[in-house]
């Protein structure tokens, strides 16, 4: 009977947990079929998520990076930043909508300009990592090189080149190139298979987390862990 006493929503804390469980069941009701109950909670969810973001936007960004520097540090030119940014909000207006493209253009330009550093830092070390794979016992090796390392290096280079071949488009794939590209697509399937397996695991974990909440917090059943 103690369990019933504790289980029922008789304290603030328990009411909260029950509301959490209600939200969970409301969303899961779509698995049975589309219904107004689900629609209600779906719209509530979207509204809450949008409303929540306002706090961090206003205080962590607008206050911290705009109002404070103008007020406390007297950086007056910052005052122009928000009015310029507000041009974005003309986007739905037919007559003045184009001014929002000035801001969007600046943002796109900024990201384009930042791409050069990303290209260098993200891809060139990967290029260097691939082209420094030794294919035979090197003459001046430091440390021991295992046969398995060499085999894996061969595999690495072959797979990388054949998949790259598959993704070329400006010349006709014929003969050996065609076969390489076909093998490339098969190798690609291995990579996609690992993504498949990992994605399934991720999705299951999210569901498990939910069931865990229902069992542990709502029904108060001690769960798992051996």
């Amino acid at each position: 009977m103690d369990w019933i006493q504790e289980f029922l929503p008789l304290s603030v804390e328990r009411i909260n947990v029950w509301i959490g469980a209600l939200c969970t069941f409301a969303i899961y009701s779509i698995l049975y079929r589309e219904n107004p109950f689900y629609r209600f909670f779906e719209h509530m969810y979207i509204g809450l998520a949008a409303g929540y973001a306002l706090g961090p936007y206003l205080v962590d960004v607008i206050y911290r990076y705009w109002w404070e520097p103008i007020r406390a540090d007297g950086i007056w030119w910052l005052a122009f930043v928000v009015p310029f940014g507000m041009y974005l909000y003309f986007i739905y207006n037919e007559k003045y909508g184009w001014v929002s493209r000035l801001v969007i253009g600046s943002l796109i330009g900024a990201y384009a300009g930042l791409t050069f550093q990303a290209f260098s830092s993200r891809y060139l070390p990967q290029l260097q990592g691939a082209l420094s794979k030794v294919l035979w016992y090197p003459p001046n090796a430091t440390g021991e090189i295992y046969l398995s390392t060499l085999i894996n290096n061969w595999i690495f280079v072959i797979i990388l080149l054949s998949v790259l071949t598959y993704f070329t488009f400006s010349f006709e794939h014929r003969g050996a190139v065609k076969r390489t590209a076909l093998v490339g697509r098969w190798f690609l399937m291995i990579g996609l298979g690992t993504i498949f397996g990992n994605t399934v695991m991720a999705r299951m974990a999210l569901l498990i987390g939910r069931v865990y909440y229902l069992l542990d917090s709502w029904l108060m059943i001690r769960v798992g862990g051996g």
């Binding site: 990967q126 691939a130 990579g191 397996g197 990992n198 994605t199 974990a205």
Partner: peptide
């Protein structure tokens, strides 16, 4: 990462990034 993103990160592990 979440598991969804893990498979894609093995290239960064290999290159020590």
């Amino acid at each position: 990462p979440t598991s969804v993103m893990a498979a894609e990160a093995y290239t960064f592990l290999d290159s020590k990034q």
